[in-house]
Design a protein around this nucleic acid. Structure first.
Lengths: 206, 206
DNA sequence: GTCTATATATGGATAGAC
DNA sequence: GTCTATCCATATATAGAC
């Protein structure tokens, strides 16, 4: 019996490969040859599908950045109670990160080294503005009711994101400092899914 | 009256310039020409002082990584009480970061994109192992005495480092998401020096 | 030590055959 | 659509004058 085509289209293979290489090496570290090798195709074909390195990068970058915002917004802007919201946020965010472990470094790194690329071309489309109004109100309400300590919403959000994201950004550094191997580190990341929310809630609970 | 030479030696100027450029653009993003311009000298002179880009980078990288470890160790390994230790650690660490705001991205980025460079050549010298024994003992003791919730020392340290470092790594991202300008962000970073330690202590205190 | 000029290598991009 | 061969710009590195 004839098998259905297993391999993805060339275009898809290139995008997969490009993501892998860009994420690993950053824009300027990545070589078109690396991407071609990774996709097991010829270098010229990259240019056939995506005119230039710049265009290929922008596409990959966009596709991946855009994944992040909507999810975050829908949680931040939900009607859940504050503690539930924090738990949902952490669960959702860490889940997304464990599926895209290199995305934060990719974003942070390229945002830092080529801010102009981002702010000129990508930011206008990405609509990066968080919907924080409801969230701010909740924090103020809970503080007024004496349920949590007074804390600025920005601080709370920054701390939450820090606790979620840093272990992915700092993976090699942390592994080095603590001496963890890959398996150990994966277990630690897994365990954090349980720990992080309660760490945050503890710190603001009265 | 004859003034003492104000300008640093050429070698020093190159190192300053190289740090600035490498930190800003990463290894592969940095151009020797950029460094030469920054140091206001000729490109050839770079090679005269430091044979190759690779060697220059390694030197800069090393010098900066080595700054981090000893300080951290001396605090972690001190005889201070746990809460004091956390406060000292955060104060010291955030102080260091505010003097070297781009160092974390530099380290994390290069560690991720060129792990081989680091692990082969740099790690053996840097002696990255944290002295955590005393710290572990303290946490276990305090938990046994019911002063803090049970928490793994690794988790506590990772969270602490996350809360300190991430705002520097994710600066452009956070600025974009929250819409902060430079001044606002600097103020937020400044404010965190007061907030972070108590956030952590709150979360583990019973 | 510092410069200008140049050699050499690398990597993005294109031409043209199939 | 996919390949090989090639072009061309850029960047590292060196030679050699001062």
């Amino acid at each position: 019996m004839k098998l259905k085509k297993i391999s993805a289209t060339t275009e898809e293979r290139i995008k997969e490969a490009a993501k892998k290489v860009f994420v690993q090496k950053g824009y300027s570290g990545a070589r078109m040859q690396d991407i071609a090798n990774e996709a097991k195709i010829n270098k010229a074909l990259l240019h056939y599908y995506f005119r230039s390195k710049d265009q290929l990068f922008e596409l990959i970058f966009m596709e991946n950045v855009q994944k992040m915002m909507p999810k975050i917004n829908s949680i931040i802007d939900s009607d859940d109670k504050l503690f539930d919201k924090i738990e949902n946020f952490v669960a959702e965010y860490l889940g997304m990160l464990s599926e895209n472990p290199f995305l934060p470094l990719f974003v942070v790194n390229e945002l830092s080294s080529h801010p102009e690329r981002f702010f000129q071309k990508i930011a206008p489309l990405a609509n990066g503005n968080l919907k924080v109004n409801k969230f701010i109100q909740q924090i103020q309400d809970e503080a007024a009711r004496g349920k949590i300590i007074p804390i600025s919403p920005v601080t709370l959000l920054m701390n939450t994101i820090s606790l979620c994201v840093f272990p992915y950004l700092g993976k090699p550094m942390i592994q080095f400092v603590f001496g963890f191997d890959e398996l150990q580190y994966r277990m630690i990341l897994e365990q954090r899914k349980k720990e992080v929310a309660s760490f945050i809630i503890n710190s603001i609970k009265k």
